[in-house]
């Protein structure tokens, strides 16, 4: 399972967010939601994908705070 903790898991899910890669990704913690207990899980690069609270191994990526513009039509 630890094989999944490569840079692939840290890439921004939107794909368009190129600015994130320029920041130091080694120290940045990314927050996920646990699939079982719904708690917040902070993960850093290289850490096993596992909920600290309940040990569940399925985590969900959160939506970014990136602004999206829509026309109200």
């Amino acid at each position: 399972m630890s094989g999944y903790t490569t840079s692939g898991a840290q890439q921004p899910s939107t794909g368009a967010a190129a600015d994130a890669s320029t920041i130091d990704i080694h120290s940045r913690a990314v927050s996920y939601t646990c699939g079982d207990c719904d708690g917040d899980v902070q993960l850093k690069r290289g850490e096993p994908i596992r909920c600290r609270n309940c040990g569940h191994r399925v985590l969900y990526k959160k939506r970014t705070n990136r602004m999206v513009q829509f026309e109200a039509r």
Partner: peptide, 12 residues
């Protein structure tokens, strides 16, 4: 007057 542009920062 009516809302025309919506800028969504977060919508879960």
């Amino acid at each position: 007057l009516a809302i025309e542009d919506v800028f969504i920062y977060q919508n879960t």
